[in-house]
Design a protein around this nucleic acid. Structure first.
Lengths: 205, 205
DNA sequence: GTCTATACAGCGATAGAC
DNA sequence: GTCTATCGCTGTATAGAC
């Protein structure tokens, strides 16, 4: 079990360093020194750097799914979407310094033509699918995926410019605009198009 | 003059490779082999990799300024903004493969804590300032910068998701949504708030 | 399971011949 | 202005002692 624990520690440290410095720039030496094991010992737990990356992505996916699942259990669909928008505010300090963990990794791996790129993009899909389900629960039958992509797009754009300009007021303003956009979408929702009763919608996720 | 020409060739090749592979992953060897000069000879033209990066960013800024200047001379403010939105369509193939040249460089240099980061972010500002001027010319006095940032944000978000999902239909749809958004902004523009006559607006840039 | 020692490739950068 | 040769460093990865 000590081995499993060390593996988890390495994964957690690598997760952080891949985020803060980028996958390529984060060296084995930097991870090993942070975990406080020797570089050689490293390879007992992971054979290659790509193996660590895969473990990090799997951890990120699991973390996000747990977060979204928690919201799905605690709130009705509309509020769940507002929780997603709220990530920009909650994490704004880290986003302004290092960008979005999902977007920056995906962009880096795309340039490297890295074999784990699809896995990294799956992280986007975790949010996309979850958002789509919330819009479906609200009754946006045919447009749910487009709406999910639109919200995801705006969160990526805000993260990119927040990282460049480090402007908290901009982030706040755009998060509010996203919330307003959601209001407008719901306001023009034709009530008859929903095949589910409001009660059934609540249960959906 | 042959030296200047070689320098320009190196800069152009580095520009492309930095875009396609990322700054760190694009090695001297790869640039040299593309330019068809030896690695050693390289250092006659640029003493360090950072010098090449600075030259590349300066070139990108000059290129973009020329592009925007051309639009400013050819179209009225509203159409200029639509030209900006059109970049997403014009460059969609490259964006889907390599992402946005401005956003991906800025994100990479931010993680590397690179000294040229501010210079790279200046590329954002070229677009931001130009867009702000167009909104000002349209009469959006106090909101012009916020509107410019909003458009820039959306273009960054679209580029990020286009890169991940390589979905041309998504890009087309969101570009249209941006154009529609512009319509709506202009529709609610209070005509009295503009301090400039329509004629003077046309001349502004 | 953890360590030291080391192989080997590739990087940015330099020196000096032509 | 271009070349070859080479340095010093760091990167991933391996071998083998403890």
């Amino acid at each position: 079990m000590s081995s499993r624990s060390t593996r988890e520690i390495i994964t957690a440290v690598a997760d952080q360093l891949f985020y803060e410095r980028g996958f390529e720039a984060a060296s084995f030496a930097s991870i090993a020194s942070e975990v406080k094991i020797s570089r050689g010992n490293f390879y007992y737990h992971f054979k290659t750097k790509n193996e660590i990356l895969e473990a990090v992505i799997a951890k990120r996916i699991a973390d996000r799914e747990a977060l979204l699942q928690g919201w799905a259990e605690a709130f009705p669909p509309e509020d769940r979407i507002r929780c997603f928008i709220g990530i920009l505010i909650t994490n704004q300090s880290k986003i302004m310094t290092f960008g979005c963990p999902v977007g920056t990794l995906s962009a880096e791996l795309a340039k490297l033509n890295h074999p784990a790129l699809d896995q990294a993009n799956e992280l986007f899909t975790v949010f996309r699918t979850w958002l789509r389900q919330q819009f479906e629960a609200l009754g946006f039958a045919g447009q749910s995926d487009a709406l999910a992509m639109h919200l995801l797009m705006r969160s990526q754009g805000v993260a990119a410019l927040a990282n460049a300009y480090k402007d908290a007021e901009f982030v706040r303003r755009e998060a509010e605009a996203m919330s307003l956009w959601l209001d407008q979408q719901i306001a023009v929702l034709p009530p008859a198009t929903s095949p589910l009763s409001p009660l059934e919608q609540q249960k959906e996720d």
